[in-house]
Each structure stands twice: as C-alpha cells, then as structure tokens.
Computed example of a mutant assay.
Amino acid sequence: MALFLHSKLLHDHLPFMLLVFFSLGACRLHASDPPLTLDYYASTCPTVLETVRKEMECEVQSDPRNAAMILRLHFHDCFVQGCDGSILLDDTMTLEGEKKASANRNSLKGFEIVDRIKNELESECPGIVSCADILTIAARDAVILVGGPYWDVPLGRKDSVTASRALSDSNLPTPDENLLSVISKFLYQDLSVTDMVALAGAHTIGMARCASFRSRIYGGFAATSGHDPASESHLNSLKSICPPKGADNNITAMDYETPNLFDNSFFHILLKGEGLLNSDQEMYSNVFGIETKQLVQKYAAEPIAFFQQFSDSMVKMGNIANPDSFTTGEVRRNCRFVNT
C-alpha cells in the first residue's frame, strides 16, 4: 500500500523509497489462502476449541500478562516462515531454533502455556492438533479474555520441521526501528499499512524491557510529548525504572493507562506523544506517516473500528503460510521438538 507523502518529502527521499519497495518484489512466502477451514477438527478433535479456551482462562486469571505473552508468540511465529509453530522449537544438535534470535531473546515467554495445552490435547486426541493451530487459537482466546474482540480462527496448519534464526533477525520489527522500515517488513508479509497500525494496537496489553525503550526515553520522548507537566512526570517515572545504563530487564507497561485491558487507550497515548517504543510513536509522529497518523487518530476515536480491523488483520496474519509445511510439515507430539 502506498504511503500518502508530501511531494517534497517524497522527492527528497525517492531513492530510499524505491529501494524499500523494490526489495518487496523478492521471492517470499506470501499470505495466501492456505487450505484452512473453520471445521477442520470437527470430527477428529471436536473439543479442541473448548480445551484451549479453558486452559487460557486459567492462565489469564492467574496472570493477565499471560495474554500478551501468547499474543506476542503468535506474532513472532507468523513473521518467520509463516504461522508454522517454528518459534516453539528448542535448539538441538541438528536444529537451530528461533528463541535465541536477537528479536526473541529475553522477550518471549509463555512457552510452558503452549506445552500445557498441547499435553491436554494429546491426551484427548493424540497426534491430531498441530502446535501452530494451538498457538493461533490461544492468541485469539487471550485477546478475548482481557476484553478484546472475537474472530473465527481458520484451522489446519501443520508444524514446520525447520526454523530460521536468521529470518527472525531480519523479518521481525525492532523497538527502535523507523516507520518506513517497519512498514516494509509488514508489506513483505502481505500485510498493509492498515494491518500494521491495527496490529500494533496489541501493545495495549503487555510489558516492554528497559533495553527496548531506553533510547526512546533518553532521546525523542520529550520532542513528541512537548512540555506537558503530566508527560514530564511520566518520563521521569520511566527513567526511574530504566536508568541510562544497566537494569536492562526492568519492565513497564506499554499502555500505562489500562495495562491489563485490551482497549484503544494505546492510541490515545500515541496522540499525547507518550508511546513507549519508538517504532510505535513513529506511527503518529513521523513526518512520512500521513496515513498512519490518520489511522492512529481514527482508532483513538473509534474503538469499534479498531476492534473490527484488529480482528480482520489477525485473521490475515494467521493465514500467512509456509508452503513447505503443507508438504513436509507434521503434527508434533511435543511442540518443542520435531517428531523422530
């Protein structure tokens, strides 16, 4: 999807823009129409949706942050090789997993939740439900359980027998990334600018590590939030959590207003210039982001529109396919290891 840019800015940065969009033409795994259906397990494992929901209810009741953890796992899975459960694989002597990639190391949790759901389903209908499908269903249920929208989840994914640490490092957006770079990574997955802004709204739940927002609070935070005393007080609070050096693993909520509720307050925070991550705030503050700014304003004003688009974009992201998984994929008995 083209960005709506001022003509002078477009002219000044045309070589870079051409480079970004030309690179998108390279061969890749397209979000297509994989052979997924809503009733895939109707006869082979009819209790799958209920089982996942019950387990997620327990997990989110015990700690609401578990919802964000599962949602993030699903996102990080789909952006690498498609939604094929590759993010769940542990390193072995013969396989290098994705968990230790720079974009994943120290930031992904919730693997044990997937393990528990898998174990339950293996006792009910062994060898039937893929780990990739479990993660996709669990992400949907996680959102619902903290107040977010419902969407139907097409099923029938197979689990990949491979993983790619290199693709994790190259495909996943980073917290300090600029707007055009993040957009290019979404377009690479056949996800539009609208999808990107809506999916970024998932940051209405969840936490971020100090290492992910240090450069933001000691750099451009004041420039985007102005001199509002409330913003200055919030910035000082963030600096007390995240000093200039050390304390990399200290965490704070990306949505400080309603951190455990899936709503549209994340977009209100961006309007105030107080986005915790640079990659988020740039959707509203970057001079190139004419379209993204309009979408942030829209979702801040219209929560129903945000919920609807988020649901649509989650289905679209969940349909990103790894073609190889449909020919060489499997249903893992243990989500951490390929079958032997």
Results as ranks from 00 to 15, higher is better:
V197I: 15
D176P: 13
D90F: 10
N106R: 12
P126S: 12
V129Y: 00
L95E: 10
S160Y: 06
V129L: 03
S164F: 07
N104Q: 04
A101N: 06
S168G: 15
E177P: 13
V146M: 06
A166M: 13
E124P: 02
K99D: 00
T174R: 15
V182I: 14
L155M: 15
K118F: 00
I134Y: 04
D159G: 02
R116C: 10
I183R: 03
Y150R: 11
S102F: 09
D159W: 05
D141Y: 09
T162A: 05
I113E: 05
N171A: 12
L155E: 03
R105K: 13
L191G: 12
A103E: 09
P173G: 04
D195T: 02
K100M: 14
Y150D: 14
L167F: 12
E120Q: 13
K185E: 12
K118P: 00
T174F: 11
L199H: 00
Y150M: 05
D90Y: 08
Q189C: 07
D91G: 06
T174A: 14
A142N: 05
E120V: 14
C125M: 06
G97D: 09
Y188M: 15
S192A: 05
V129W: 00
K118E: 08
S170H: 10
G148E: 02
A142E: 02
E112Y: 00
G147Y: 02
K158T: 06
S107A: 13
A101Q: 03
E98W: 04
N171Y: 12
E98S: 13
N171C: 13
N106C: 07
L199R: 01
R165E: 11
I113D: 01
V143P: 00
